[in-house]
Design a binder for these strands. Sequence first.
DNA 1: ATGTCGCTCTCTGAGCGA
Length: 267
Amino acid sequence: MLVVTYNVNGIGARLDALLDYLEQRKPDVVCLQELKAPQEKFPESAIREAGYHAIWHGQKSWNGVAILTRDGPAQELQRGLPGDPADEQSRYIEAVYQGLLVCGLYLPNGNPAPGPKFDYKLAWMERLIARGAALIETGAPVVLCGDFNVIPTGLDAYKPERWVDDALFRPETRAAFERLMSQGWLDALRSMYPDQVVYTFWDYFRNAFGRDAGIRIDHLLLSPAVAPALRGAGVDRFQRAKEKPSDHAPTWIEIDPGAIVQPKHPR
DNA sequence: ATGTCGCTCTCTGAGCGA
């Protein structure tokens, strides 16, 4: 089962590229971020004609997340990250698909830091940590994936010294991410490539992709029940090299559904 | 500080967020 996370940076501008990708790779599950489209502007029919079911949480201008599935619809469990009823930003969606709990997220960027946007990022991460603990505690097989806007370590940035004051790499951000990870999540890409440089995002400016001046901020975290099913992982850089690309590349894992551990007493 | 995109609005450029 191929599970992909892909920040499209505007579903309107990226529809052709997305359809091309679906045709080329035929992923089973795709978590999308940064739709930048209101709920009613999501191109549901074009995606259906491409052979995918979709659930999505749109928002005018900014944010927006979706989950696409190929072999049947996903059952939506949660829309919006719990913990703050006043938070109206569309950054989280959760669904069950073929026994797998798929959580797609678009974590706040948080720049400039310090400031109110950084405070919002850290507060959002606290809510994510609470959600992560609850998910792990069920024993369910969970893939928690998306654009985390977190550079976990210096290995994950071209010239990390340039990111020290950035909200994606500040100590508070990395510490919160480490607290999430300490719950028992497996960073799928890093586990497959322990020492290698792996980037998922390259700025549009200064020919960043051509120079491979990237960062790794799109992550797929696996709960203990799905970690043993991991068979492969990677970044589809070819998609970033196409015409009119997103600044992110699709990032993927291959899992063996037969190796997923289902809890004996599902709640 | 800069660079380049995408989206929205008052509208064919400017502001904002990333």
